[in-house]
Computed example of a mutant assay.
Amino acid sequence: MPADTTTTVAPAARMRLLPGLQLTQLAMTWAVPAGVVLLWELAARGGLVTPHVLPAPSRVLATGWELAQSGELGRHLVASLARASIGFVIGGTIGFALGVAVGISRLAQTLLDRSVQMIRAIPFLALLPLVIVWFGVGEGAKLFLVALAVVFPVYINTMLGMRQIDPKLMELARVTGLGWPAIVRRIILPGAMPSVLTGVRYALAQAWLALIIAETLATTRGIGFLAMDAREFLQTDVILLTIVIYSIVGVGADALARVFERRLLAWHPNYAEGHA
């Protein structure tokens, strides 16, 4: 009898410890960044690095607070987020549609894949002069660059996910008489979803990279413009602030993607609640 009590209580005890373990793990993931910032602050205050080269984190934070109070930081941040979001939706939709078509259809693969891969092989910056000729330096050029950067990660991972579907499941679906819409809904999309979401996470990083380049074009709004304008006046604290903002937004976007992973892939053993 005591043995039975132990076996039933132990899992409950482990479940109670789980939140504490998660908090410990979270603290450990931030230990190194916090240590770097602390050393940076001490080095700046001790005169080991000059403010012109690397201002202290406290100075960067104060600059961010000043820009936030004036409303300038919010204006630039909203502009950048809007560009990144619209470009991501456009590029992600195109990449997903192409990935599904090529992943399912041999004919689509024959007609489209080689052309897509050739475009993907072109260096991103090499297209910049042509994009300016096509769209000028307006919002269209910026959205095009962001969308172009997003298309390929989503396309490749979606196509890969489609091709990794177990053929036995497809055969079973045909034997049981499932229609094509049901096969797509119940087998193809769930089976490809882990790979698709991996492409989404990678595309989020690519979107911010493209946005930095896009906002170097003639513009008066955006975090990239804020950095370029600070460079002209040698405002190192503002430049570092923009880098920190890009980092924070990138981490936040990746965390949001992980939330979608846990919700959409709750059935998958590798994406259970608490998956890092």
Rank of each mutant, 00 (worst) to 15 (best):
3 A>H: 09
4 D>T: 13
8 T>R: 14
10 A>D: 11
11 P>N: 12
16 R>E: 10
17 L>V: 11
20 G>F: 11
22 Q>L: 14
22 Q>E: 14
24 T>G: 15
30 W>Q: 09
32 V>H: 04
33 P>L: 02
33 P>N: 03
33 P>T: 03
34 A>K: 08
34 A>M: 09
35 G>I: 03
35 G>M: 07
38 L>R: 02
40 W>M: 05
41 E>K: 06
42 L>P: 08
46 G>D: 02
46 G>L: 08
46 G>V: 05
46 G>Y: 04
49 V>F: 08
49 V>G: 07
51 P>Y: 05
54 L>V: 09
55 P>M: 07
56 A>F: 02
59 R>T: 15
59 R>Q: 14
59 R>C: 06
60 V>Q: 03
60 V>W: 02
64 G>W: 06
65 W>C: 14
66 E>S: 10
68 A>V: 04
71 G>H: 00
72 E>P: 00
73 L>P: 00
74 G>C: 13
75 R>Y: 01
76 H>E: 00
76 H>G: 00
81 L>Q: 05
81 L>I: 14
84 A>T: 00
84 A>E: 00
86 I>S: 09
87 G>E: 01
87 G>L: 07
90 I>T: 02
90 I>A: 06
102 V>W: 03
111 L>N: 02
113 D>F: 02
113 D>M: 04
116 V>N: 04
116 V>Y: 03
117 Q>V: 13
117 Q>H: 09
118 M>V: 12
120 R>T: 04
121 A>T: 06
122 I>D: 09
122 I>V: 15
126 A>L: 13
127 L>K: 05
128 L>H: 13
128 L>Y: 12
131 V>F: 07
131 V>H: 04
133 V>L: 15
137 V>Q: 09
139 E>Y: 03
139 E>S: 05
140 G>V: 00
141 A>D: 04
142 K>G: 00
143 L>P: 01
144 F>N: 06
145 L>S: 05
146 V>T: 01
153 P>F: 11
153 P>I: 14
153 P>V: 11
154 V>A: 04
158 T>S: 12
158 T>I: 11
158 T>E: 08
164 Q>V: 11
165 I>Q: 07
165 I>C: 07
169 L>Y: 06
169 L>G: 05
174 R>C: 10
181 P>G: 07
182 A>T: 07
183 I>D: 02
183 I>K: 08
184 V>N: 14
185 R>W: 05
186 R>M: 14
186 R>E: 13
187 I>G: 11
187 I>H: 08
188 I>W: 13
189 L>D: 02
192 A>Y: 13
195 S>H: 15
196 V>G: 10
199 G>M: 12
205 A>G: 15
205 A>M: 15
206 Q>G: 15
207 A>V: 01
207 A>H: 08
209 L>W: 01
213 I>A: 11
214 A>T: 00
214 A>K: 01
215 E>D: 12
216 T>Y: 01
220 T>M: 00
220 T>F: 01
220 T>V: 01
221 R>M: 06
221 R>Y: 03
221 R>H: 07
226 L>S: 10
226 L>N: 06
231 R>S: 11
231 R>E: 08
234 L>Y: 02
235 Q>L: 13
238 V>A: 06
238 V>L: 12
239 I>A: 00
243 I>A: 15
247 S>C: 14
250 G>R: 03
252 G>V: 09
252 G>Q: 03
255 A>E: 08
257 A>G: 12
257 A>L: 11
257 A>C: 11
258 R>E: 12
259 V>E: 10
263 R>N: 14
264 L>A: 01
266 A>Y: 13
273 E>T: 15
274 G>H: 07
